[in-house]
Design a protein around this nucleic acid. Structure first.
Lengths: 218, 218
DNA sequence: TATATTTGTTAGTTCAAACAAACTTATTAC
DNA sequence: GTAATAAGTTTGTTTGAACTAACAAATATA
């Protein structure tokens, strides 16, 4: 059996690891706001359980089993977020905190039922992929809006960092998943961008925002 | 803030206390399957927090605040059970275990939303009353089927002990909340009862079962 | 009433998960 | 290439929530 706390560590490792699948104790500590000695101790425990490859002074890696378990926690989180939005009428900016708690419920039937009632969704309300029951993640190739060039027409497909503030800002600007927009110009000084959707008039987005918007190119 | 564990103690105290609102350390220990010293220690902590009246060698009582908190945990549990049955399609025998976990979620909005989507239900799927947001419980006067006499016509209104086995048995016998039945005879030897509903042929219920069925008299 | 049994309490232990302090190893800068 | 800084580790403490062993109080029984 795996504890609530252990699930949180695995999820964080999976979510914040680099391209090689590695993360340092220090980075993990910062992301979790838990002091390094505590993280270090937990890594030894997870290593005992066969979920983490741990070697002194080396970056951490998840084992295959660790990766699968982490993906299944993420699955529970994202299914819950989707359920809260689609079936209970919550806003996409409200669901993260609730899902953080519900993701630890131990009941496969409960999450299977959500999945079924939702019609087996591929993505959560922020566009992040929902891992399948085997822990496999189907990821799309998306580009940050910041990388796009003037004249590009792209569709908002996902939000890189789903903080409440950013999501509220997007509500305010009437930018939703699926919204098509065209880049009109980029200010070279601060990389702010003027964009245009079919429904609203042109608007400026700061680089801080365009870095977080993940777009699909046709 | 109140912990998951503390919530469970309060809920158990509230649920198992006697008519005077009292319960002994020993009884509580048995209901929770937690050893007496642990229970005793927790009672001292809850007493520090002003939730329990604790005096050495005397039976335990909840304070007014303790009672309210306990009722609010029970509210979360019963709303969840109702939601799982009505909105997610679970059977009434499946929901207790899941609700035991979800009742500890800290999110008033989440439970308010359930309440709203359910249309502010008065009872859970087993007929138990759902406390209101102030912790007040509206209880009906119900009689055990075992107390009824031949010729009595009564309606199944609640199940005293909602164990999975009993609920499955009732499924099997096609007895649901709201089912009207007439007592045809009682066997004095073992107090088993012959009953008849409008839809099925007469059936025998053992005293073990009739003690658990709570009926409404017209 | 004296004894036995049940119930309640105290003291001390364990484990998980957090912390701080102090130390070691690795990396960066001069 | 050594000193300074950053990162990682070890050791020991704390708190919550469980346990056992041992003792004390209350109740039941002979």
């Amino acid at each position: 059996m795996i504890s609530h706390t252990e699930e949180n560590y695995l999820k964080a490792m999976f979510g914040f690891m680099d391209e090689q699948g590695e993360i340092t104790v220090n980075e993990l500590s910062k992301h979790l706001s838990i002091k390094m000695p505590t993280v270090n101790g937990m890594m030894k425990r997870l290593s005992e359980k066969g979920l983490v490859h741990y070697e002194s002074y080396k970056p951490l890696k998840l084992t295959e089993e660790g990766k699968k378990l982490a993906a299944l926690v993420i699955r529970k989180h994202r299914l819950t977020e989707m359920y809260l939005v689609e079936k209970m009428g919550f806003g996409w900016e409200e669901v993260h905190i609730i899902a953080e708690q519900i993701e630890h419920i131990q009941s496969p039937e409960f999450f299977d039922k959500m999945d079924e009632l939702l019609g087996y969704p591929q993505h959560d309300p922020h566009g992040s992929p929902i891992p399948d029951k085997g822990g496999k993640i189907k990821s799309r190739k998306l580009v940050r809006l910041a990388e796009c060039a003037p004249e590009d027409t792209v569709i908002l497909a996902a939000i890189a960092d789903s903080s409440e503030e950013l999501l509220k800002f997007l509500n305010h600007r009437n930018l939703k998943l699926g919204t098509e927009l065209t880049v009109e110009s980029i200010e070279s000084f601060d990389k702010s961008m003027v964009i245009k959707t079919s429904t609203d008039k042109s608007q400026v987005l700061s680089n801080l925002v365009t870095e977080k918007l993940l777009m699909e190119k046709e």
